[in-house]
Design a protein around this nucleic acid. Structure first.
Lengths: 192, 192
DNA sequence: TTTCGTGATGTCAGTTACTGTCATCACCGA
DNA sequence: TCGGTGATGACAGTAACTGACATCACGAAA
């Protein structure tokens, strides 16, 4: 018999998602989340830096998926193509089965600017990691940052489309189109 | 004889900037800021939604500069060119004289992720306003969002370069180069 | 088996961001 | 002169977050 059931962190994250979803972010106290997970408030703050962070677990793994994509791009690929490959590979895990969960979470995020800013910070971290990976491939600045940030822009725009009501297309498909569209936009701009 | 000196809000913002800069964001209490401005803590929260917001005044005016740029773009301009015009026009106010102030503020922001997330949220607001202005010009989605977000990416990357140590180039110059560089990156990607 | 170190948790007190409510005061127009 | 308005003060209260120390299960070493 163990004193504590395993995976306190995951239990807390799950309880937070459920409570935020059910009764709202502001209306949920950390003490409530902890109690719902059979732990104390103090323990919550040992696992998560703050109340919002409980919704943002797995960031390292998320970023790693993109970085793995960088490695998969052929050596001859242009910086922009490397970024595009990274985005497409990193988005692979978000399959149709995961959409309901992503949607539930996104609805909570969209309802509170405090949570949206945290999301933006995480995406900025992704862009930074991507840029670093490009620099490691001898891409210079500001090309690396521009390519990385543009890739994340495509990811974000496509992500919104993916979770939009009525959408049936896959995230990766939407991203392919968005990359093409971005290319067209820039082309038209340069060759009128 | 007035009971309160005028411009409580500006005095609070100025006091906050100075205290954050002098002794750090975490080490500064709102009560301290208020006292330094000759007001009370309660009044601070009447002017600013939270402790961070004191560093982000003038957002409306900032965004408006970009929106004005949209109106200045010729009717024949492509969505991407409209966004570029908006960014260049909106960046005009940030002249060399304003650089020291921007630099002082940016150093505070860079030192605290809480403040960086707020900055990202403000930039997301700018991107959204830009996209809306594009849509009002009959640009479709996701082209409008892609163009707007790309423009903001260029702004952000150029902004970092502008404030980098030793830089002497103007923000607008850096942006022109960044737009050209982004175009080249995408071109190379499409025509190998 | 016993002992002891380690890691995760509990307990508790404290600070501070932020909010609701009501009172107060200067100013301005009727 | 009077009443309305807007900005502020005063004060109590909630909840996020932190530091310090105690406790308990578990596993390894003695």
């Amino acid at each position: 018999m163990v004193r504590w059931e395993a995976d306190g962190r995951e239990r807390l994250a799950k309880a937070a998602l459920e409570l935020y979803s059910k009764q709202g972010f502001d209306e949920t106290t950390v003490a409530e989340i902890a109690q719902s997970a059979g732990l104390t408030e103090r323990t919550f703050f040992r696992h998560f830096a703050d109340k919002r962070e409980a919704l943002f677990g797995g960031q390292d793994q998320f970023v790693q998926g993109f970085i793995d994509g960088v490695a998969l791009a052929p050596h001859s690929a242009s910086p922009f193509d490397v970024a595009a490959t990274a985005v497409l590979v990193g988005s692979k895990p978000f399959t149709a089965e995961r959409r309901p969960h992503s949607l539930q979470r996104q609805k909570i995020l969209n309802a509170h600017s405090e949570l949206r800013e945290r999301e933006l910070l995480k995406l900025a971290g992704l862009a930074h990691a991507l840029a670093s990976a490009l620099i490691a491939r001898d891409v210079g600045e500001p090309a690396a940052s521009l390519a990385a940030e543009s890739g994340v822009v495509v990811f974000r725009v496509s992500w919104d489309q993916w979770l939009a009501e009525g959408n049936t297309r896959s995230l990766v498909d939407l991203e392919r189109d968005a990359f093409a569209e971005l290319g067209t936009l820039v082309m038209v701009s340069r060759k009128p």
